[in-house]
Nucleic acid binder design. Structure first.
Lengths: 181, 181
DNA sequence: TTGCTAAACGGAGCATGCTCCGTTTATGGT
DNA sequence: ACCATAAACGGAGCATGCTCCGTTTAGCAA
């Protein structure tokens, strides 16, 4: 990329990211104040917004590493869809901000969102394919649909105290994926 | 009820409701400004908030009639769960504000929310029971779980331009409800 | 070293949600 | 007709998201 950042810009970006990471760690990040994050980073609110135009951009910058790790897990570990889905839901429950970001990513059609989507559906798809090859689940359901189902579960029952409910919804989803008949 | 409203209070409440109905009709209501509604009703913002402490209260006051109608439909018409669910999702898609309100209702445990929840799960339960009796679907899934699944679908794929996606998720849900094996 | 300019900065400013509280008034009793 | 007072009113005020724009400066070329 020829678009290298100016030194001061890069430094500020890092300060903001660090502050955001700290703020998000405090409470899942769903409602951390961006002004507060900017202040904590010692940067003007305008600077934060120029670098991360939307809350989702910031959330994504903070958590993309973890998402990658989860995706790799889906591609490399044994094909236990249910277990992986639980991990995924737990992740979204812990980082509530990500659940909202996911919703946007799943709806939008800008290059950026599509890439993220491709990353996740790719991993999930590979997991589903493997499981299907073993006859554990159906083979005719698109990974994107499953991902959206997971996103839906986390949106409607993603609070930490709704684990049981989320589990039941996941049961229902798994039932829908069963290769009966 | 001994708690009758003072005449002026009642009048203002009606004005607010009428204004809200108009505002919501314009755009689903998801992001109509409450200040604007108050102004349109010729009432102070404080008055609006005293009568409807949360946005959901207002949304509910505006739409409870329609929800009732849909519930009755579930109880009285032929047991076609899928058709009813589509109606329900369409309703939520048209009144985006209701989708958010539903999420809150499904999470909270205050008397009010529980009552609303009971109203809907009651109707849906009756529909599911009838269908189950005919062998059309399983009989061991709680109505609340199905309702939450529907809520999840509408949260993750509730925009009008996501109908197809929502349909696929509904397929998945129906598959999960099938009485196979 | 000295300019020049694109890039970056940062905060004022506006809209919104929601609260708080001093002021006004409907209503029932005398 | 007159009060007393609980009830209702309404908007000032604070926090937040996000934008806009005048000011500052890093990085480069002469």
């Amino acid at each position: 990329m020829a678009d290298r950042l100016r030194a001061d810009a890069k430094a500020n970006q890092d300060l903001v990211l660090a502050a955001a990471r700290r703020a998000f760690a405090r409470d899942g990040g769903a409602d951390a104040s961006l002004r507060e994050i900017a202040k904590e980073a010692g940067v003007g609110i305008g600077t934060l917004y120029r670098r991360f135009p939307t809350r989702e951009d910031l959330v994504w910058a903070v958590y993309s590493g973890e998402v990658d790790r989860i995706c790799e897990e889906a591609e490399t570990s044994a094909p236990h869809p249910r277990a992986w889905m639980e991990t995924f839901l737990d992740f979204l429950a812990a980082k509530r901000a990500m659940a909202d970001a996911l919703k946007v990513v799943l709806a939008g059609d800008e290059e950026r969102r599509l890439a993220v989507r491709a990353r996740i559906t790719g991993a999930l798809g590979s997991l589903l394919d493997t499981a299907a090859a073993e006859g554990a689940i159906r083979d005719d359901v698109a990974a994107l649909d499953v991902l959206m189902a997971l996103g839906g579960i986390s949106l409607i029952a993603g609070e930490p105290d709704q684990r049981a409910q989320a589990g039941r919804l996941l049961d229902l989803l798994m039932d829908g994926l069963r290769p009966c008949r």
